[in-house]
Amino acid sequence: MSETTTTPAVNDALGDVKVRSLLVPLSGMLLVLPNTAVAEVAEFKSPQPIADAPAWLLGMMLWRGRSIPLLAIEPLLGGSAGAGGVHARAVVCNTLNSNPVMPFIAVLAQGIPRLQELKPDMVETVEGGEGEELAVIAGRLRVAGREGVIPNLDVLERLLLQLGVRVG
């Protein structure tokens, strides 16, 4: 079970810092991405499946003439991937390493993401998580009463590369 703790030291260190973030609805939680990590919020289209892919790798989707991997975060956290419904979107993220083989990854959103400026007094850190989950999650927090996770894009990129996935 996760435990919520306020982090005065973090809030004091941040002072009046505001981080423009994209709040991405997942099944039962939010994915929190810094605005600078997001290339585009695209229309969801069923991806081309990849044989023997793990549950979190939904397949490859076409975006701007390129084939990029589409991920579901929920299976990485022990849940199941939601279905791409009417409001589903694909959030295309820039990877952080400038790797030409994996410059972008997309994450399935279960609804329409919204841009929000997060201030320290709006966010509480949440302790918890275990095992492999710790690697793919950079942090847990609570925003406006909803639990959220910040993905570790470096780890997600490495997992994809280990599976032999490449942007085409």
Rank of each mutant, 00 (worst) to 15 (best):
L58R: 14
V136Q: 03
M122Y: 13
M102N: 07
Q48Y: 11
A106P: 03
S67T: 05
I105V: 13
V86C: 03
T95I: 03
A42E: 08
M60E: 05
C93K: 01
G65S: 03
V101F: 00
I50C: 03
G84Q: 06
V86T: 12
I137C: 13
I50F: 11
L115F: 08
A53E: 05
Q116P: 00
R66H: 12
A42F: 00
L70W: 01
L76E: 03
L134T: 13
V92D: 09
E124D: 15
N94T: 00
A135R: 11
V91M: 04
L159S: 05
N99W: 04
V143N: 04
L118W: 03
R66K: 13
M122P: 00
K119N: 13
I105C: 11
E74D: 09
E133H: 12
A51S: 11
G79Q: 07
A55G: 04
I112V: 15
A37E: 05
R64I: 00
V143C: 06
H87A: 14
E147T: 12
L115W: 01
G129D: 05
M122S: 12
R142E: 12
V101D: 15
V92E: 08
G111Q: 04
S67Q: 12
A83T: 11
L108Q: 13
E147D: 15
L160Q: 01
V155H: 07
L160P: 05
E132M: 12
A83R: 11
